[in-house]
């Protein structure tokens, strides 16, 4: 289980996260709602090890994630699919995916198996596997980004706004894939502005506002909450 306790992150004098408490149980999809600048990406960068917190703890299955070393976190089963994707644009799709399995570089057979699995999940990528990742459409690049993080064979997948800038049909495809990944036993923490699609597949959710958790609850509770409905569902 992911356990975040009283986590605070400062950028200089600016406090981006303030005493955040959050959990993800094994097998859950938990959605993180919030406007731009609410602290979603900061939380994800911290959980992945890119950013060190100024206070508080974050552990996955009891192992601390706050050492500031992403290679440690991904080797412990926590993979981030970041906002902006951070692909290797001039490398082929397949090379991007193989690099995603870098922590399993001594297990070639396992990497081949996983490669087959992610192509099965995103069949659109099969025909593009020799194309430079940067030449793909936004939706396909997002698929490469998710697939690359899956190549690390995570137990906890952190997805930062995977639907950003994608056409509705592609969003549907991406969310269906996330559901399938979760069904295979991977726990998921999903940041979204597209609250409706996200709550559709999530078990529970949190709302971040100004770096604090302002609301949390089950899927039904959040879908029925007036503040969520007006702020994030537009109804």
């Amino acid at each position: 289980m992911l356990e975040v306790q009283r986590l605070s992150v400062n950028y200089g004098p600016f406090r981006a996260l303030h005493d955040v408490d959050l959990t993800v149980q094994e097998g859950e999809i938990v959605v993180l709602l919030g406007a731009n600048g609410a602290g979603k990406s900061t939380l994800f960068r911290t959980l992945s090890g890119l950013q060190r917190p100024s206070a508080g703890t974050a552990t996955w299955r009891g192992v601390p994630l706050t050492g500031g070393r992403p290679e440690f976190n991904v080797a412990r089963g926590v993979a981030l699919c970041p906002e902006g994707r951070l692909l290797f644009p001039d490398l082929s799709v397949e090379k991007n995916l193989r690099l995603g399995a870098f922590v399993h570089r001594r297990d070639a057979a396992g990497t081949e198996r996983e490669l087959g699995r992610v192509y099965d999940l995103f069949p659109d990528l099969v025909g593009k596997r020799h194309a430079p990742a940067g030449s793909l459409s936004g939706g396909q690049q997002q698929m490469v980004a998710i697939a690359r993080s899956l190549m690390a064979r995570p137990q906890l997948l952190l997805l930062d706004e995977p639907s950003l800038g994608l056409a509705p049909l592609v969003v549907e495809q991406v969310f269906a894939a996330i559901s399938r990944v979760n069904a295979s036993g991977v726990s998921v923490l999903l940041a979204e502005q597209n609250a409706f699609a996200a709550l559709g597949i999530a078990h529970r959710g949190y709302v971040l506002e100004g770096g604090r958790v302002s609301l949390q609850g089950s899927q039904e509770a959040l879908l029925g909450d007036d503040r969520v409905r007006s702020a994030y569902l537009g109804v």
């Binding site: 001039d90 490398l91 690099l99 870098f102 993080s149 190549m151």
Partner: peptide
């Protein structure tokens, strides 16, 4: 490939465990 990866996206390289 890790050298090329790092020159194309340093943070992307860190996230895959390089």
């Amino acid at each position: 490939a890790t050298i090329e990866a790092m020159s194309q996206s340093r943070e992307g390289a860190r996230l895959v465990g390089i």
